[in-house]
Design a protein around this nucleic acid. Sequence first.
DNA 1: CTACGAGTTTGAGCGCGCTCTAAGTCAAGA
DNA 2: TCTTGACTTAGAGCGCGCTCAAACTCGTAG
Lengths: 142, 142
Amino acid sequence: MKIGELAKRSGLTAHTIRYYERIGLLPYADRDRSSRRDFDASILAWIEFLGRLKTTGMPIRDMLLYADLRDRGSGTEAERRALLERHRESVRAHVDELNACLLVLDTKIGGYAETEQRMKDYDATLPERRRKPVGARSPRTG
Amino acid sequence: MKIGELAKRSGLTAHTIRYYERIGLLPYADRDRSSRRDFDASILAWIEFLGRLKTTGMPIRDMLLYADLRDRGSGTEAERRALLERHRESVRAHVDELNACLLVLDTKIGGYAETEQRMKDYDATLPERRRKPVGARSPRTG
DNA sequence: CTACGAGTTTGAGCGCGCTCTAAGTCAAGA
DNA sequence: TCTTGACTTAGAGCGCGCTCAAACTCGTAG
């Protein structure tokens, strides 16, 4: 598979694929007679997994540690597992934090909803001709 | 409150507090006779809220939009609410994505656990003197 | 009076993760 | 044969969010 094809399939740009190879996140790819990379389809699963690590906030330097263990093959399973377990805990902690923030956001948004309701109620007490047009800016409610 | 005190209480560095003021994320603080910032304690709640936005991945440029609406006061509630609602949705989506990644991590980690178990089982079939020392690297299992 | 420490400003620098440019090579189609 | 376009390399540049440096001013304790 050429780099353009891999780019399409993986969602990375060709630039990024070359960059990942350069820093060692992707194994050095075979080249054809004219120095062009020819990727094995199996690289897609690895790129996809790297994407998961990235999505979950793992820095590239840690992915490199994992990639290195993987390259070294058997005998590194325990370390790889430990690395992923540590990462899993940090992701879980982050999810918890996000959920806590979501509660705060809900409260804040709820506050604005109340404000808007009060404004509507107030508006409804006015005689028809004094009601403000949609989007008008009063009364004040911080 | 002086900047050092605010730094301690907020968890930001004094550098970051000045930076936030400079870019407009914090309101321009009052200065005393010798040009030193004197913060009102109420700024803490705002910094804390900014922290939530940051934790949930909101870029500074969006926080600035929110901060601007807030500065403009009443009449901007609907926009502020809409902004927070959009953000809430993106956070929820991100949490879902993280949870999906956690499942993948669980599977991967489970795979390593199996490998380790197979290795232990294999090891137990060997006569006592051939069992490998803890941490040894065989047999091969990808 | 002096020294210290906490503050001030402007502006440069940094770490991260790409992203792009320049100049060149090569294979295939018109 | 010529052109096109996808590829190659090394290395520069960028956007983000800080983080720090330099040179300075104050207020206070000894």
